[in-house]
Computed example of a mutant assay.
Amino acid sequence: MTIHLYGIPNCDTVKKARKWMDAQGHEYTFHDYKKEGADAQKLERWADRCGWEILLNRRGTTFRKLDDAQKANMDRAKAIALMREHPSIIKRPVLETDDGDSVLVGFTPSEWENLLR
């Protein structure tokens, strides 16, 4: 099974997740949103699997800095467009298996352990 990890390298939670993955001996590819952007098809698939509400990080600085019009009347299409434009508002990290069937958002070691057994 190939594992893909998505996030921003200087994010503390991403750092913890990567350290955990290394300690567990899991090989993975890392996708840096800052350098590589966020793919619309992937965001759509993740929204199908987890819900766009889970993916959208409303607590972060980037989201809070958006103007009220951008935050108003949020729905799936608007959230995905904002995540493409501002990848920093995607909750991170996102872990995905190569088949695309398994997607975890955020880092909870017990959930990751259950998936990667």
Rank of each mutant, 00 (worst) to 15 (best):
A79D: 07
T108C: 01
K78T: 11
G106P: 11
I80E: 00
K35L: 15
S88T: 15
D22A: 08
A79C: 03
L115G: 05
Q41A: 14
D32C: 03
V14P: 07
D101I: 05
T29P: 01
H26S: 04
Q24P: 11
H26P: 04
A79Q: 01
Q24G: 02
G7L: 02
N57L: 01
L66T: 01
R49S: 14
N57I: 02
R64P: 06
E85S: 10
A47S: 15
D12F: 03
K42P: 00
A69H: 06
L43S: 10
K65H: 10
G51H: 10
F63H: 04
A72Q: 12
V103G: 03
T62H: 09
H26Y: 12
K34C: 09
G7K: 00
T2F: 05
R58F: 00
D101F: 03
I90F: 04
N114F: 03
M1N: 09
L116W: 10
T29H: 11
K42E: 09
G37I: 14
L116P: 05
I90S: 09
P93M: 14
S102T: 15
A47T: 13
V103R: 10
I8T: 11
P9W: 13
S102L: 12
T61I: 10
R84S: 07
R64T: 03
T61F: 10
T13W: 14
V14D: 02
I3W: 15
R58L: 03
I90P: 06
Y6T: 08
I90R: 01
D48F: 14
